[in-house]
Design a protein around this nucleic acid. Structure first.
Length: 138
DNA sequence: GCCAACGTTGGC
DNA sequence: GCCAACGTTGGC
C-alpha cells in the first residue's frame, strides 16, 4: 500500500464536504499539473491519502481512501489530465498543522515542505505512521 | 529549442 | 496584499 497527500483549498472543496459524500466517494478533479497527474496515475485502489487544507487552515484534517484508480478528468476539456475517486475514511482527532510538521525534525524531508506547490504528493510509510500518531488516528 | 514574460499556488 | 517558487506560453 502506498501513501499520499492531497491538497484542497477548503473554500473550493473541504473535508466536511468530503465526509458528506460518504463511502462512495467523489472525483478528485481539477489537478492541472503533470507531476501531480503522474502521482495520481500511480495510485491503487485501497491506497490512503492525507487530506490537507491549503491556504485556510494549513493542516492535515483527515484520511481518504482511493476508491477508483486514475481515469480522464471529465472537467478537463483538453483530455490531458486525470483524476481518481476518493472517499473519506477517518478524521484526525487532532489536525496536524503545517507549523507542527515544520517543527518536527523527522518530517523535514516531506514533499509538503520541499515542494509546497505540488497538490498531489507521495508520503513515506514512516511519515504516515508518525502523522497518524500525532493526529490521533488509529 | 531557448528564454523572457506571465500566471498561479500557497505561505506569510 | 506581498512575494517566492515554479509551471506555461509565445516570440525568436
Amino acid at each position: 500500500m502506498q501513501y499520499w497527500l492531497v491538497k484542497s483549498e477548503p473554500d473550493a472543496w473541504s473535508w466536511d464536504e468530503q465526509v458528506k459524500v460518504g463511502k462512495k466517494g467523489t472525483a478528485w478533479t481539477g489537478v492541472r499539473n503533470h507531476t501531480a497527474k503522474l502521482n495520481m496515475m500511480k495510485m491503487k485502489k485501497g491506497d490512503r491519502a492525507f487530506f490537507y487544507h491549503s491556504n485556510v487552515g494549513k493542516e492535515i484534517v483527515g484520511i481518504v481512501e482511493i476508491v477508483k484508480e486514475a481515469y480522464p478528468d471529465p472537467t478537463d476539456a483538453s483530455a490531458k489530465f486525470f483524476c481518481v475517486d476518493v472517499a473519506a475514511l477517518a478524521p484526525l482527532q487532532q489536525p496536524v498543522t503545517l507549523a507542527a510538521i515544520k517543527a518536527d525534525k523527522r518530517l523535514t524531508e516531506m514533499a509538503l515542505l520541499k515542494q509546497s506547490r505540488l497538490s498531489v504528493q507521495p508520503v513515506t510509510a514512516a511519515e504516515w505512521k508518525l502523522i497518524c500518531k500525532i493526529g490521533g488516528a488509529e
